[in-house]
């Protein structure tokens, strides 16, 4: 199960909080480590894609499961 190193639950939070919390969590992580993010904001799908493109952190996975949006981001 442990296919990630840290987890961030941003459920119930709206733009731009999921991105801001994710950024904050990534700052405290080592390069190459993987962050799992759980969000409920539908806008977060496009936002995390854009976040990854602009910050160089890799978006490994983005999927929807039971009304939640799940992301795996690898710290650059």
């Amino acid at each position: 199960m442990a296919d990630f190193d840290e987890e961030l639950d941003a459920s119930g939070l709206n733009c731009p909080l999921p991105i801001l919390r994710a950024k904050k969590t990534l700052v405290g992580m080592e390069s190459g480590k993987i962050l799992h993010i759980i969000a409920t904001d539908p806008g977060s799908v496009k936002d995390f894609e854009a976040f990854a493109r602009q910050t160089g952190n890799e978006l490994i996975e983005s999927k929807e499961e039971g009304g939640k949006f799940l992301f795996l981001i690898k710290k650059s």
Partner: peptide
């Protein structure tokens, strides 16, 4: 505040 905080998060 939304744009500034997001921009800062984007570097």
């Amino acid at each position: 505040f939304i744009l500034a905080s997001t921009a800062a998060a984007l570097g």
